[in-house]
Write a protein that binds this DNA or RNA. Structure first.
Lengths: 241, 241
DNA sequence: GGGGGTACGTACTCGCGGTACGTACTGCGA
DNA sequence: TCGCAGTACGTACCGCGAGTACGTACCCCC
């Protein structure tokens, strides 16, 4: 049937008689193997399309091992989800740290984010199936890290004003802009010519940010908390062109 | 076990001996009942959380009827998906037709879209699970109708220029803005105070659109097709503030 | 009025997630 | 060094649920 325990350990580069090796090392290796195989299969075939049997077969263990390390299929998916997200955050942060100037850092962050959304694992596990499997609030919670980058950038672009911006309005701006960036990444990933598409996307994002700066510099005031608290705001349309 | 055929027909308000009634009417009624029950259950419990047994029990038919009308669970979900989307499009179009002025129409369309994204059925079936179950390209295809509203609006805001805008760039703008609107709806739906949140969202969207108009009127040119075709564009950042 | 086709109902299979339980190995304390 | 407890699995099984095969009643049209 399945390979013997000794053969498996041999394949993992460990002594077949593990008298000397640390036991926890075996355990961690098994767990990591499960997560890595699961990431590959979930990315290729999706959550529902991947059976636990396929995962344990790929990792050359059995369901007993899987259920020893994880509470079930969802928990395993969540582990994969966290891993993919962590890799994405690392990628974005590394890109930003290569820049000195705050503005360049922000641009690098945006580019990094658009890049990340194009990774197959990120698209499938985090964007496509994550919300349906784990609930979108769980995704939001996890994505909070990369969201912060966008949040700070928006605050920076809208900032430099005397009275502080209404926090909920800032949150709204950030959320909207975050959704815009996600769509931008999707647009590039779905495009037949990713290079050309990403150039368009950068132009578009730059144009939008430029517009926000123009609005700010033109003195078009955002409403304060008291105006927003009142029931009927202004018609909410643009300044007369 | 289950109710007899006669009892079911009685319950549906049809003669228990349906000698006079049209046969196709029974069929359509069964099909619609299945879709309606499925919409309710899919919205409440999600795709994976809803069993076909629960659906056919709710519709007071059996799996034979379901598999006669639909190719399987996915096909039934797709029918629900199309129904929910069609209702959403109708809602948006109706809101727009109440306005005369093109700008007011556009604003009504945006508001209608943000409204729609807050409907539980739309959120769950179209936004949350649709992409994972049917694939995001299928969702894109279906959502094309409401996307057109956004597309036209963006073209309108960016338009009024001498040389026409690069089509792919316009597509990028629309996609990004569409994503922004989706996030806006999600923001409102997730908020504890939807009224306050939707006011913020309208302000933010108005501010962004105003920025785009300012950019246009300030003569900040978007690159043409030939510049975009060249490999390295400008750094893609905002105009100096 | 009978034959064919539609619109179901019934009974079953099978894949898959989850569970119960057995077991080998390992590190530790006496 | 010997037991002993706990870990890290393996194995066998259960139940649910999607899909299928097949039977049947009824309607419509000739």
């Amino acid at each position: 049937m399945s390979k013997s325990s000794a053969a498996r350990r041999l394949r993992q580069g460990l002594p077949s008689v593990p008298g000397t090796g640390r036991r926890a090392q075996f355990s961690d290796r098994t767990k990591r193997a499960l997560v890595e195989v699961a990431e590959r299969l979930f990315t290729e075939d999706g959550y529902a399309g991947t059976s636990l049997d396929a995962i344990v077969a790929g990792a050359e263990v059995t369901k007993g091992a899987l259920y020893h390390h994880f509470d079930g299929k969802r928990a395993l998916f969540e582990a994969v989800f966290e891993r993919v997200e962590a890799q994405a955050v690392g990628r974005i942060k590394r890109a930003m740290q290569e820049q000195e100037d705050p503005w360049d850092q922000a641009v690098a962050g945006l580019r990094g984010f658009v890049d990340v959304v194009q990774q197959p694992a990120y698209r499938r596990v985090v964007v496509l199936e994550g919300p349906a499997v784990l609930g979108h609030e769980r995704v939001r919670e996890q994505v909070r890290t990369s969201f912060t980058v966008v949040h700070d950038l928006v605050a920076n672009v809208l900032g430099d004003r005397r009275q502080p911006i209404d926090p909920m309005l800032l949150e709204g701006f950030s959320t909207i802009f975050f959704g815009a960036l996600s769509s931008a990444g999707e647009f590039v990933a779905d495009s037949h010519d990713p290079g050309a598409a990403s150039r368009r996307v950068e132009v578009a994002i730059g144009y939008i940010l430029g517009g926000l700066q123009l609005m700010r510099d033109a003195g078009v005031a955002l409403p304060g908390e008291q105006e927003l608290a009142a029931g009927a705001g202004p018609d909410g349309d643009a300044p007369d062109a």
